[in-house]
Design a protein around this nucleic acid. Structure first.
Length: 194
DNA sequence: AGCACGATGCTCT
DNA sequence: GAGCATCGTGCTT
């Protein structure tokens, strides 16, 4: 089942937690690539000084102000694309960063796209799945764009760890230390459904 | 096996 | 013109 818009139109922390175990699906050149989401981070509103929306509505951030359930894809560090999903109501800028997946289908293709290197990390999964500028703003609640998220495996609280968000070097407190990163212990979900 | 650092180009000031 | 929600290399241990 493709996750409906109502799934995303909830508090961002709720969505970030609920996305653990969900299936991220990408159809690339007719090949289906699937990974279970095992790590996410929440970025919540203009007051969150780690969130790009701290600068208000700009050409880059406008997707976050739009309808929940769309992809917010941005470029950083001169090399890397990052995949986020927009959450909460229209005009409230928030999103969940997909930081890591556990490949369960098309792993060979993804590895090949990475020149044999691993696919673990926010920039790496985008390269492995061919996600870039063209996917910014696409609707994830349908299959038309070749990118969507389906219900997957239920991950019990006993397997979920929270921690501060990664890579926030010059973000002031308290935002820098908010435990808004969610990850599956050992980054492995046992017995993934296919 | 782990850590430090440089690459690289887009976005906003 | 500075900064950046990272990655890969190369060096050290």
């Amino acid at each position: 089942m493709i996750l409906p818009r109502s799934f995303y139109n909830r508090p961002t922390l709720t969505v970030a937690r609920a996305l653990l175990g969900a299936r991220l699906v990408r159809v690339l050149d007719g090949v289906k690539l699937v990974g279970l989401i095992v790590e996410t981070e929440a970025y919540i509103g203009e007051k969150d000084l780690a969130c790009h929306a701290k600068a208000g509505r700009t050409p880059r951030t406008q997707v976050m102000y739009g309808e929940p359930g769309h992809a917010y894809v941005y470029f950083t560090y001169g090399n890397h694309w990052m995949l986020n999903v927009v959450t909460e109501r229209v005009n409230f800028p928030a999103a969940v960063l997909i930081r890591a997946i556990q490949p369960i289908q098309g792993a060979e293709v993804m590895s090949k796209r990475r020149n044999g290197r691993d696919t673990f990390g926010p920039g790496k999964l985008c390269q492995a799945m061919g996600i870039g500028k063209g996917e910014n703003g696409v609707d994830l609640t349908g299959a038309a764009s070749g990118l969507w998220i389906e219900a997957g495996v239920e991950v019990p609280d006993s397997l979920v760890t929270k921690s501060p968000r990664v890579g926030l070097t010059s973000v002031p407190e308290p935002w820098k230390s908010k435990p808004w990163r969610f990850l599956v212990k050992d980054h492995v979900i046992a017995s993934p459904s296919r």
